[in-house]
Design a protein around this nucleic acid. Structure first.
Length: 679
DNA sequence: CGTGACTGCTTACCT
DNA sequence: ACAGGTAAGCAGTCACGA
């Protein structure tokens, strides 16, 4: 209450009701949700055949249900020609059925005990299959607890949450799960998030002994459930908080993107204040785009990225604007109905760098909603999450709220620049970005005026070198007074190394921890051998405390890299560590313009019978064969093109070594110590 | 017909 | 169906010179 009252006091009158409304809603305790995960296995003629849910022509041979109340059941179909095997399923009660009909009946009955059913891809497969299979077996509609929509499956008595769609949500993937997984499969997500895996087996699922099949199926249900229970039910908590903010039912919010959450939230607010919801045509007609994008194919100009000053800089502070774009939307009163408003007296209220003006008479709906949510996150929930001991109920609640607000706030500007958003309003989007450029450039000017050296900056951040704590604090005060926007001291690096490339740097903190941005050496598709080598080199460099320390580190780096390149030449590196892992974003037939290397490898895989579809990760190695690549699973060690790997290593390490002023070729070719000089 | 400059496609990243 | 900006590798095209 104390913190909330302080926030209310510092808020403008128009924002106070919103702060009150949000804080009383969001601080409600989080319910424990009774639920069960469900997974099914279907007989299939061969291992590459994926049974069609609509036809549902094959038997359902196993179902597992894993409940939050501790009940865990495996339903198995007895098949005469299959042995039971000797697998043990310790945790669960195992039930055998002679007839598939009675198995399904028992499963449906069990489902009724749970108001929430959790699946991984149940919309497309598990529930869809169960429904059609039951129909095929003569079940009547009223005894099947499932309804099918166009792209989703509903539970008649409760809520079905399909985690596949939840974990595939790009915004959640990036901002909540920190891009820890790339592929959206159950196995990839579980490995990245809860350190669990699917059970591996060879051949076809239908050929497994019955108990072995049960063990496999049960494990899937178990890890699916764990995705909702790990870290104190964080996924369930996220769903509850998103539902509260977005004013959206659970069924929808797990399946729809952030733009839909924001649409729902904005529409709700229109209804609450008795305002008409405009049509997209009305909103689009407000104005047109003025700026031109730097990137081909984009609609308007975006953020500004400063040229980094190449080299090593010691004692670098990073200043950044807290939630820059939401702050701009709030402070500059940006909204579809305030931009280019009808009042002639507002026409002089011009947005910097644009011909657009904005209303002076009243606050816009976007400004009020996004502005108040921004303040809630920055001034209330972030500090509150830190105030309570980690793991306490309060810390857990405030952290969840803070994460959800982050996702929504991060998307709140972008939605106005996307045609699919019903309140699409390009002048709002381009004005937000324009003000961002204006603010960061003004701040750079102010630094220069104060003789503070700016060595880099991107969108909302400035890296300043050689400034003391006092000077940084003065800048923060200046921003508050002259810009009306909150600037923070984000961190202070022991040193930062920049090559000449933007969005690409190494920052080392006083405690030796480091931050790597942009480097090829950290990208998910880079071969493990090169990625490991890169992190090891950075590890060596992160111990450096002064210019002279670089001398000693240099020798260590050189020796280390020489070892790796020698191993590469002698083909001592295992294939798995040499593989590039690249996502194939569409189906093979859709690559009509070019045939990139991962597509070449995928085509070779298809020729061996493997199915490849959009979203799969293709693992390939560079070879001396005519295609230049081979899928890792089909390649032989002697086919590896060592030179290609050394070339790739060179360009990977140059991004780092450039900054330090020496050449990769010298590192691996030279034998004389005196050949090396550091900047 | 081979080479190199150039453009466009594709993926992954940064804010 | 949030946005734009940047890096990098490779595929494909085309002019140029032999």
């Amino acid at each position: 209450r104390e913190e909330r009252e302080a926030l209310e006091k510092s808020s403008k009158a128009e924002f106070i009701p919103y702060v009150k409304m949000w804080s009383s809603l969001l601080t409600q305790p989080l319910p424990k949700i009774k639920r069960a995960s469900l997974d099914i296995e279907v007989a299939s003629p061969d291992e590459y055949h994926i049974p069609s849910p609509e036809e549902a022509e094959h038997q359902v041979i196993a179902v597992s249900i894993y409940g939050s109340d501790g009940r865990k059941k495996v339903f198995l179909l007895k098949r005469g020609d299959h042995s039971l095997g000797d697998s043990k399923i310790d945790e669960a009660e195992v039930l055998f059925f002679e007839k598939e009909e009675s198995l399904l009946e028992a499963v449906f009955l069990e489902m009724l005990d749970y108001p929430f059913i959790i699946t991984y891809n149940g919309d497309e497969f598990d529930l869809n299959y169960l429904y059609h299979r039951a129909k095929n077996l003569g079940f009547t509609e009223d005894v099947i607890p499932i309804n099918l929509g166009r792209d989703q499956a509903w539970i008649k008595h409760g809520v079905h949450i399909d985690l596949y769609k939840f974990f595939a949500n790009h915004a959640l993937k990036v901002y909540v799960f920190e891009s820890k997984y790339v592929e959206n499969t159950l196995n990839s997500v579980c490995e990245a998030i809860i350190n669990e895996s699917k059970i591996e087996f060879e051949g076809s699922i239908s050929d497994l002994p019955i108990l072995e099949l049960g063990r496999y199926c049960f494990n899937d249900a178990r890890i699916t459930y764990m995705l909702t229970s790990y870290n104190d039910d964080v996924v369930m908590r996220l769903l509850v908080v998103i539902a509260r903010v977005a004013k959206m039912p659970f069924e929808d919010l797990g399946r729809l993107g952030v733009s839909n959450w924001i649409r729902s939230l904005m529409y709700f607010e229109h209804r609450r204040i008795n305002a008409l919801i405009p049509t997209s045509e009305e909103v689009s007609a407000r104005g047109t785009i003025y700026s031109t994008a730097i990137t081909k194919g984009k609609k308007y100009r975006g953020a500004y990225v400063l040229e980094p000053e190449a080299g090593v800089h010691f004692n670098v502070a990073v200043l950044d604007f807290a939630s820059l774009y939401p702050s701009i939307i709030k402070v500059y009163n940006l909204s579809y109905e305030t931009i280019l408003c009808g009042h002639s007296e507002c026409r002089s209220n011009i947005i910097p760098e644009t011909p657009h003006w904005v209303c002076k008479k009243r606050y816009g709906i976007t400004s009020l909603i996004i502005g108040s949510l921004r303040d809630l996150r920055v001034k209330l929930y972030k500090p509150l999450a830190k105030k309570y001991p980690p793991g306490s109920d309060q810390a857990v609640l405030f952290n969840t709220i803070s994460q959800v607000l982050k996702v929504i706030l991060n998307a709140s500007y972008g939605v106005f620049g996307t045609e699919a958003f019903p309140l699409y309003c390009p002048p709002v989007a381009e004005s937000t970005a324009a003000v961002g450029r204006y603010l960061i450039l003004k701040t750079v000017d102010e630094c220069r005026r104060r003789n503070i050296k700016v060595v880099y900056g991107d969108t909302d951040s400035l890296f300043i070198s050689g400034a003391g704590k006092g000077e940084a604090e003065k800048m923060i005060e200046w921003a508050e007074e002259d810009l009306g926007i909150e600037l923070d001291l984000d961190k202070v690096y022991k040193y930062v190394a920049f090559s000449k490339r933007k969005k690409n740097y190494l920052g080392v903190l006083p405690n030796g921890n480091f931050v790597l941005k942009g480097f090829t050496g950290k990208k998910s598709n880079t071969p493990k051998v090169i990625k490991d080598a890169f992190y090891n080199v950075v590890g060596i460099l992160s111990k450096v405390n002064s210019q002279s320390d670089f001398e000693a580190a240099r020798e260590e780096v050189k020796k280390y890299l020489k070892g790796i390149t020698d191993d590469l030449r002698k083909k001592k590196i295992p294939l798995a560590d040499l593989s590039f892992n690249v996502m194939i974003s569409k189906d093979l037939s859709e690559y009509v313009d070019t045939t990139p290397q991962h597509v070449k490898a995928a085509k070779q895989l298809e020729r061996t019978g493997r199915k490849v579809k959009g979203g799969d990760i293709i693992s390939f190695v560079k070879t001396t064969t005519p295609d230049g690549v081979k899928p890792t699973s089909l390649a032989k060690p002697e086919e590896i093109d060592a030179n290609k790997y050394i070339e790739y290593m060179k360009s990977t390490f140059e991004q780092l070594l450039d900054a330090l002023g020496y050449e990769f070729d010298e590192v691996i070719a030279s034998t004389k110590l005196e050949d090396f000089f550091w900047a």
